[in-house]
Design a protein around this nucleic acid. Structure first.
Lengths: 105, 105
DNA sequence: GATTAATTTGACTATCATTGTCAAATGAAA
DNA sequence: TTTCATTTGACAATGATAGTCAAATTAATC
């Protein structure tokens, strides 16, 4: 898992590697070119559905791309927060706790 | 840090401990009683500003309450996600990576 | 157990963020 | 210099969030 690249960078690299135009990929996603351009430059976030479609279109491993995407969403929540990394650690503990007593509450 | 309690539970416990009514605390927060009730039962999320005010009103350590609150926000993002805990781990790595090369990009 | 006070619920509204379109501007390639 | 691809920014549509209010429910008190 590349942790030094943004989702957008991954998408752009792979698209160019395959010689596809924004226009072509955007058409498959059924959105305007402008949005895909923004997604690739991290100016907008993709939706989960778009990520899944993009994995297919660009031959990227869906699971990896989703993890990448989710981790970015998480970081977005705490990006301006002093206490961000402490919160992350607590979130992990809570996660484990919830898993252990998996009753959904 | 209590990882087994929701923010709402913490708030309710402390409020009752102090013998305060929803009405009284809500007034200080300048919101309707109904919302505070919902916050305490985790039916709505508080805002960061409300959390800070609540820490003051209820004599809770602001930092702890904020960490608690942020971690809940993080978990909310991935609550229905299969890949949630993997995403969390990647988020932590990214976080460290960003910190190491702190240039803000 | 009737009355009163506190909390909860749900319908509704206002506000704000997100997701998109479109057209014009910019950049790159031919 | 013309053409095609990408970027930018203004705008509109949509959806999520945060709130009010009044009625319903629950808890406490007389």
């Amino acid at each position: 898992m590349k942790i030094d690249k943004s989702t957008g960078e991954i998408l752009r690299e792979k698209r160019e590697e395959k010689g596809l135009l924004l226009r072509q990929v955007a058409a498959k996603l059924d959105i305007d070119t402008a949005i895909l351009s923004k997604i690739e430059r991290s100016e907008r976030k993709a939706s989960k559905e778009q990520i899944i479609k993009l994995a297919k279109i660009l031959d990227l491993k869906e699971e990896n791309l989703l993890i990448q995407y989710l981790s970015e969403k998480i970081l977005y929540e705490i990006k301006d927060e002093e206490l961000g990394s402490k919160a992350l650690k607590v979130a992990e503990k809570k996660m484990k706790y919830i898993r252990k007593n998996k009753s959904g509450n």
